[in-house]
Design a protein around this nucleic acid. Structure first.
Lengths: 128, 128
DNA sequence: TTAACTGTACTATATCATATATAACAGTTT
DNA sequence: AAACTGTTATATATGATATAGTACAGTTAA
């Protein structure tokens, strides 16, 4: 499914979170699709199942997946209403980033055209 | 100068980095202006000088301040050429953020208008 | 010159986060 | 029944974080 980057010094469970999140955002993992089981992913990455579980638990808290006991974990269908706190966090984080990029004299046109591109990609969005 | 947020669970030295960086980016701290000494800031925040030093050391690595032995630490004047790696990091981080916001159906116009505002603020930038 | 200030560099210690190993429980599926 | 799910728990090891304390080297002002 993906590999861990051993040059990355962030915690394993954080890396796993980011990888799964990226697969969801990019549309590789579809809404309600099953993600690998805790033990299966642990085995394929050669790490401890508890570490996978920690990553999944946080992904669930942030609204990216939902887990059903004895069944598995699945991609949460998008819903505009939930997770307002998460949205606020992301927007705040983006404001800090943009302030920093502005401070470094990165032309704002560069940022805006990049945004247009990124929004252009996955236009087929739904609200299940 | 500023206070630490004890609801924030990130390491103290990270918080200090963020606070100082914010003061520099917002223009409160001007180029070549002195930042508090290691011991002075440690005392005013009631934390260990070693922790301040770690924060300053990283701020120096990232190019925000420079330290002169026996004199103090000072805000680095902006230079478009240095710190290309840092810029690349920030741009990559922004792309991840924007992808996530797009996935959450945040209208891109909202992001763009926010960027315009943030760029509008500190237009008086120089290249010393 | 002295005293007080700077950044920097150590050692030692305590605590918490991270990751592992291992085991078990409860429910589902075939 | 067997094999799979998520979940929970204990124990253990390691590294990051933070503190306390001391010291060195250079600067600045009295």
């Amino acid at each position: 499914m993906f590999q861990l980057d051993y040059m990355d010094h962030s915690p394993l469970y954080e890396q796993i979170k980011e990888k799964i999140k990226a697969l969801i955002i990019s549309g590789v993992l579809k809404p309600n699709e099953k993600v690998p089981s805790v033990r299966e992913l642990a085995q394929s990455l050669t790490i401890n199942p508890n570490t996978i579980h920690k990553a999944y638990k946080e992904l669930e808290l942030e609204g990216y997946i939902y887990s059903v006991r004895a069944k598995g974990s699945f991609v949460t269908p998008i819903n505009n209403k939930i997770n307002q706190a998460r949205k606020d966090d992301l927007l705040l984080e983006m404001e800090k980033l943009v302030s920093e990029l502005a401070y470094m004299n990165i032309p704002k046109e560069q940022l805006i055209s990049r945004i247009e591109e990124l929004y252009g990609r996955g236009r087929q969005r739904n609200n299940d």
